[in-house]
Simulated assay, not measured.
Amino acid sequence: MPDQTRTGTYGSSYDTNVNVNHDTPSRQTIKFLTAATIGVSLMLLSGLVLTGTAIGLIIATPLLVLFSPILVPAAFVLFLAASGFLFSGGCGVAAVAALSWIYNYVAGKHPVGADKLDYARGVISDKARDVKDRAKDYASYGQGTTTGSTY
C-alpha cells in the first residue's frame, strides 16, 4: 500500500467522521443521571461543610475573643518570622541562580540572556568610544580657540 500523506484540510473525510455522535437515547439518559447524581452529591457535601464551618465558628468565637490579646500578637510574630524566612530563602535561591548563570557565562556555555548582555556591552562600548572621540574633538577645538588669556 503506497504511503499517503494527509493534507489536513478542514472538511476531509477523517475530520467529519471523528465528530459524529453515536450516543443512543438510553446512553444519554445514563450520562445525565450520572452527572445529576454526582452534582447533587457534591451540593449536599458543600452544604454540610458550610454548616460545619458555621457551627465551628459559632463555638470558637468566644474562645477567640478571650484569647485575642495573646493570639493576635502571636500570629503577627509568626507571620513576620515566616515571611523573613521565606524572603531570606528567596534571596538565597536568587543568589545561587545568579552565580550559576555567571559561571555558565564565564565558562562559555551561553546561558539564556547572554546574547542580550553581549549586545548591551557592544552598545555601551560604542557609546563610550563616541564620547571619547567627541571629548578629543572638543579638547582640540578648545586648544585652538584659546588666546592665552587667564582668569
Rank of each mutant, 00 (worst) to 15 (best):
P2W: 08
P2M: 00
Q4H: 05
T5A: 01
T5Q: 08
T5S: 10
T5M: 10
R6M: 10
R6I: 11
T7I: 00
T7E: 06
T7N: 09
T7H: 10
T9A: 00
T9E: 11
T9K: 09
T9F: 00
G11V: 05
G11K: 02
S12I: 10
Y14G: 05
Y14C: 01
Y14L: 07
D15C: 04
D15F: 11
T16G: 07
N17Q: 09
N19P: 00
V20L: 02
N21M: 12
N21L: 03
H22K: 13
H22Y: 13
T24F: 10
T24E: 03
P25I: 06
S26M: 09
R27D: 11
R27T: 00
T29P: 02
I30N: 07
F32A: 12
F32C: 02
L33M: 07
A35F: 07
A36I: 12
T37M: 09
I38M: 00
I38C: 01
I38D: 01
G39R: 12
S41V: 00
S41M: 13
L42T: 05
L44P: 00
L45D: 10
V49E: 01
V49N: 04
L50H: 08
L50M: 15
L50I: 00
T51P: 03
T51L: 14
T51N: 13
G52C: 12
G52T: 08
T53K: 13
I58R: 04
T61N: 11
P62V: 02
L63H: 15
L64R: 05
V65W: 01
L71Y: 11
V72G: 06
V72C: 02
V72E: 08
P73L: 12
P73W: 01
P73T: 04
F76Q: 04
V77S: 10
F79I: 12
F79C: 10
L80W: 03
L80F: 08
A81V: 06
A81F: 02
G84K: 06
G84M: 05
F85Y: 15
F85D: 14
L86N: 15
F87H: 14
F87W: 15
G89Q: 04
G89S: 05
G90T: 10
G90K: 04
G92L: 05
V93K: 15
V93P: 04
A94M: 14
V96Q: 03
V96M: 07
V96I: 12
V96S: 06
V96R: 01
V96L: 04
A98C: 12
S100V: 05
S100F: 02
S100D: 14
W101P: 05
I102E: 07
I102Q: 12
Y103F: 06
N104I: 09
G108D: 00
H110P: 03
H110Q: 11
V112A: 15
V112M: 15
V112R: 15
Y119E: 13
R121G: 07
V123M: 07
I124P: 01
A128V: 09
R129E: 04
D130F: 14
V131A: 10
V131E: 14
A135N: 02
Y138A: 04
A139C: 13
A139V: 14
S140C: 03
T146K: 07
T146D: 01
T147S: 08
G148R: 04
T150K: 02
T150L: 10
Y151F: 15
Y151Q: 15
